[in-house]
Amino acid sequence: MSKKGMVEVRWHSRAGQGGVTAAKVLAETSMALGKFVQAIPEYGAEREGAPVKAYTRISDSPIVVHTQVTDPDYVVVLDETLLDIEDVTEGLAPEGKVIVNTSKSPEEVRKRLGLEPGQVATVDATSISIECIGRPIPNTPMIGALARVTGLLSVEELAEDFRKKFSGKLSDRVIEGNVRAIQKAAEEVRTE
């Protein structure tokens, strides 16, 4: 089926790494920019560390489908150890891209996943989050990397909306740490 102006993102993470939150933040920011959105967590009997999936849909028109995303345009992998146990390229659209949190090069990961040059981007989001936020929570830097690689939204829009959304809920130090992590990941994300 044709998607007609709809972009679908699948998030792979381990429970506790913030994959579901990342799916929501991307949706919320896109909505603030005038898009129609969905963010869907895929729940099972997860405990911290178990592999989990979440989805984001972004569209110019109202979204009526409520199925799980089976052929994503973009896949974001928050933990590179998931590459060993999850088929992260399952259903990936022919021109689709995979963004992986790893210190490895895009070429190395791309060969391993059996994709074409240009389809894989990598960024060391864990190191960035430890440096900027003080904890290994790679979700916000991965949104920054996704923004840069896909052009779905600008890093400035992302940072702006993040500040607005969490102002009063998180300390300024944590907010600015996250904003720095988003910016740094956008700068450092590598493609072939």
Binding site: K24, A27, M31, V37, Q38, A39, I40, P41, Y43
Partner: peptide, 9 residues
């Protein structure tokens, strides 16, 4: 989950 936990506009 589909609706209860899905984020929508």
């Amino acid at each position: 989950f589909i609706i209860s936990h899905g984020l929508e506009v």
